[in-house]
Design a protein around this nucleic acid. Sequence first.
DNA 1: CTATGGCACGGATT
DNA 2: AATCCGTGCCATAG
Length: 472
Amino acid sequence: MAQRHTFTQNATHRPMTTAHLAQTMSLLEMNNNELAEKIQNELANNPALELKEDYRCPVCGKKLVNQVCSVCSRPPSLDPSDPIVFVSSRNTYSSSYTSRRSEDYESFEDFSVDTEDLPFYVLNQIRTELKPDERAIAAAILHGLDDNGFYPQPLVELAVHHHVPLSKIEHVRSLIQHSDPIGVASQSAQEALIVQADTLREDGFDMPPLTKRALEEGFHELSKKDHRALSKRLGISISDTEKIIAFISENLNPFPAHAHWGSHRNQTSDEPERYQDPDIIISYNKEDPEAQLVVQVLWPIYGNLHINQFLKKVIAETKTDSSKQLAEEQQKAMLLIKCIAQRNHTLVQLMQKLAYDQRKFILKGDRYLIPMTRASVAEELGVHESTISRAVSSKSVQLPSGKIVPLSQFFDRSLQVRTIIKDMIEKEKKPLSDTKIASKLSQDGYNIARRTVAKYRSMEGILPAHLRKKQN
DNA sequence: CTATGGCACGGATT
DNA sequence: AATCCGTGCCATAG
């Protein structure tokens, strides 16, 4: 299939000044956090630059009233036959927690999330799972969250107000509750904890027996940390009770809106995982496997950047020295806006290419990653290698699965084979030696040296054949 | 003798 | 130019 994007390519090849070039490069290698900081900085120092805070729905572009678009949450479909849809960076929104400054909470362990951001953050995760008539309900629930992330009002009221059965409201709320932060929109701390416990269990998390019952039946004792009374109620020993309490306080969070504690993740506690906010989000409608991929290049701040029109007028009309200086500032502001546009354009082009080529990887997981290099992408897009390199660096993508991975993972040469090996070992009957694995792989067309298999194996934290005899 | 990890080299990639 | 990565060789363990 030929070019499927409608973005103009030749717009890129405008002549640039060296300043333009230098700035575009440095902006390109910034992720959204850094870019947000940069923009804030410029806004503070440059009077010619102006932020128009027109809050718009990230998906329909409609003006927002209560931070959450109450009407729609469906991405606009530019062309229904196109497998990829872009919600480009202009007029999109800042994803939730993105805008918090680190110094805001460094000293507090239990900082409270800006609850104005929370609805956005959650809505974004569930958008593609909502049916049209459920959107307004989701918006209403998210709008009614209190500071702790609870939805204290009775659900029946919503059902009456929206003229739908209570079960529908419950369904929507359950979707919300299972988003990150898990348990949000529960009616109480107790309910939030139960939802979290359920989710962890579904994820195959080991937890002490009776944890759920402790939450359901012994919540009163639990909140008072009354070990004796709790153990009596559950009919188990004190030490088992203490295990439950320890588990709950370590892994669960009664107030979903207060800082997330590192959401659930794979069983293996591997490298220090950074919970970076994504710069790009890829989602799709999970009910329709042929659905379009929705790629959002997130815009790190609220509102859009503009040139201060008032100042522009002043500059045009006066010819004093000070206005000359202002004119310079204005030039700088225009340059910045242009460079940011350039950056976004590059990112969109890159994601276009990746979303199209790696659709299977995005939808189905690591083993469908087609190995590709930055250089080859650069060639196809007609840009310099270093451009791609910068664009890829320090960015992260949220995949439809909810996983947030570094953008560089798209260029991981070995990820595909590594996951195939992992699968192979999981399905093995007798432990396979590295040599066996290597020869099996070459039958499937993967020519990998035995030595390399060993390396991949250890990268995945899998023990050598003779040590994994009878596991699981 | 087989399976695996360490070290280091060279080519690819950034 | 600097770094990363796959691979070969060899030593060691079982």
